[in-house]
Design a protein around this nucleic acid. Structure first.
Length: 205
DNA sequence: CATACATGCGGGTAGATG
DNA sequence: CATCTACCCGCATGTATG
């Protein structure tokens, strides 16, 4: 994953980070303040120690969203929003699907909802395992963290750590699962559970 | 309207570090 | 003691859904 603004001097914790970006200057000329020359396209799966600068009108950036299951964490700093990774829901038997894929569901952000997810039967019909959370330990043994900071002309993002677990299913399918109570499927896997997933792509609906 | 959940806020605690 | 990080918890709001 490229980090177009990774050569900048700014850090999310700096007292002064670049405030003027791109056309926000109103000059029409490339902005060179602190080396920031472009806005990045939203990175759904940002990983590693990366930094991005998003457009303030980016819906994804405004929602501080991520493909990873990130939960808000209190850093007692009203200027910087911090989130930490919840890891991924996996089968405690680490079963392998016919197509060679594994179970890697999206943990609920809500603590209560996440507790309910655990110990549920593995959605793989051919498996008798249970779901469990594989915690993220990608940042010195602790969960990977994301930091978000808004300025008048940009949304600054910074990540710390490398995820040491599979990507959870994307939000869209996680939401689809909540709705449909169609769990176990004939193929041995939940249909709505795996929509938009690589597993789903190997199954025929 | 009730329920479930995503998301943000912030009080408070605990351990590590300087 | 100050600071930082991780984390627990409740509260509030917004959205989707039955």
């Amino acid at each position: 994953m490229h980090d177009h603004n990774n050569t900048l001097e700014w850090d999310i914790n700096d007292n002064h980070i670049p405030k003027r970006l791109g056309t926000a200057l109103g000059t029409g000329s490339p902005n060179t303040v602190s080396g920031v020359t472009t806005h990045d396209a939203f990175q759904e799966w940002a990983d590693g120690h990366s930094r991005f600068v998003y457009r303030p009108d980016s819906e994804e950036a405004r929602r501080h969203s991520s493909g990873w299951a990130m939960r808000n964490t209190n850093n007692h700093n009203v200027h910087i929003l911090k989130k930490s990774c919840l890891g991924v829901l996996v089968c405690n038997k680490h079963c392998i699907l016919d197509n060679g894929d594994t179970i890697h569901l999206r943990p609920a952000i809500c603590d209560k909802a996440r507790k309910k997810q655990q110990h549920k039967a593995c959605p793989n019909h051919k498996c008798t395992g249970r779901l469990e959370v594989q915690p993220c330990r990608g940042h010195c043994g602790y969960p990977v963290t994301h930091f978000w900071r808004h300025t008048e002309f940009a949304v600054f993002f910074q990540a710390k750590g490398n995820h040491d677990h599979p990507r959870p299913e994307p939000k869209s399918s996680a939401e689809a699962r909540r709705v449909g109570h169609s769990y176990k499927f004939s193929r041995g896997i939940t249909r709505s559970l795996l929509l938009n997933n690589s597993i789903a792509s190997s199954l025929q609906f």
